[in-house]
Amino acid sequence: MGDVIFNNVRQCGHAKAVFQMFLNLFQVTGSNKGVGFAVVRALCKSYHGDVFLTSRGVGRGQAAIADLNKEGLQPKFHQLDINDRSSVDQLKSFLQTTYGGLDVLVNNAGIAYKKAHPAPFSERAEVTCKTNFWATLDVCRVLFPLLRPHASIPPCHSTITECSTAVQGRFKDPSLTMNGLEKIMQKFVDCALLCAVLSRQVNTRTMDSQTRRASCPRSGSFIQDREIRKDSREDIVINTCCSGSVTTDMSSHQGTKTIDEGEQFCRTYSETPGCDVVCVPVQV
């Protein structure tokens, strides 16, 4: 993931020495395990700035810090529950007071229901979108004002390969606004709830897959990239990357890559700022 960020800046014409001078504070959400943990590890090995590992549970986060300490790495920890606005606000206040800004934000936090979970699809759709889409968007809206010139935001996303061509077209529409995207997401949740009310049967396996993918559409990053280009702060880059099918709790350990291979995948393919660089389906 270190090279993901470096490649973003390199595309803007910066030398590596200048890049390392600018980026001093790294924030990775949902990083006590899985790909997020691997991203923290890679950043600690590659850069001299402060790298913050975050998790909902303080105990799990501190245990992850201890594991990295055993490897000779010194990440820092801050509690963060992206579904809790007060938790997000506390993180912002801490970063603003302690560092005066933020250089790199890796939005990795997210959830996925297990296939065998008894919850109905309507609940899965509502809860998953609440976390993976709206809570992540909330984190962006709270923390983006802290971004300093030359900052980088490489969000981790999934592919949307099982939606109809018409739906994919709506996500890919270059004129789509964030307000329009939020309406699409709300309609998806409303339709799921309506199916529950009408007691309609749905293909749970297919719809679960669509929920995981639809809940974190890459189009949101494209919209944010268009908006941030109008910002007076110089050279802020928003990219979108996908780790591929990784063996983690989120994929019920059904992936084909290790967490370090997943981190390497992002590093290899996320080379063009503001563009869709994902080329394979993914289990998140």
Rank of each mutant, 00 (worst) to 15 (best):
T177E: 12
A119V: 10
R218A: 00
F22N: 02
L25R: 12
G244N: 12
N7K: 14
G2Y: 15
F19Q: 13
E71W: 03
V237Y: 02
E263M: 02
I153G: 01
S122W: 14
D190Y: 11
E234G: 01
R10Y: 09
C195T: 00
H14T: 03
E261R: 12
L102Y: 06
R141K: 07
G72I: 02
V167W: 05
F133S: 03
A196E: 15
L105R: 12
Q90I: 01
F222S: 10
D208E: 01
V58N: 15
V9N: 06
G49L: 05
V4E: 04
K183P: 05
T128Q: 09
S243N: 12
R85C: 01
T165V: 09
A119N: 09
D249W: 06
T161N: 01
V39E: 09
I236P: 06
F121M: 13
L43S: 15
T206K: 11
S175Q: 14
T256V: 03
V280N: 12
A17T: 06
H48A: 05
D276I: 03
V58T: 10
L176F: 04
D235N: 14
Q79S: 06
P273E: 14
R41P: 05
R218F: 02
R124Y: 15
R229A: 07
G59M: 13
T258H: 10
T131L: 11
D89L: 11
A17K: 08
D260P: 13
N107P: 03
Q224T: 02
E227Q: 08
A109F: 13
D276A: 10
G72W: 01
F37W: 03
V106W: 10
A42S: 11
S122D: 05
Q186C: 03
T128H: 06
N132L: 01
T97A: 13
D173P: 11
N179L: 11
V189P: 01
V237T: 07
R218N: 00
G220D: 01
V277L: 11
I5G: 04
L95F: 14
T29Q: 02
L105E: 15
T159S: 06
D231M: 08
L102Q: 14
G36Q: 11
S221K: 07
V167R: 06
Q210R: 15
V202P: 15
M185F: 11
A109P: 14
P145V: 09
Q27P: 00
D84N: 14
T128P: 10
Y47E: 12
Q62N: 11
C216R: 14
E126M: 04
F188Y: 09
Q90G: 03
A116E: 09
C242H: 04
Q62C: 09
C129H: 09
V58A: 13
V28M: 02
D103M: 08
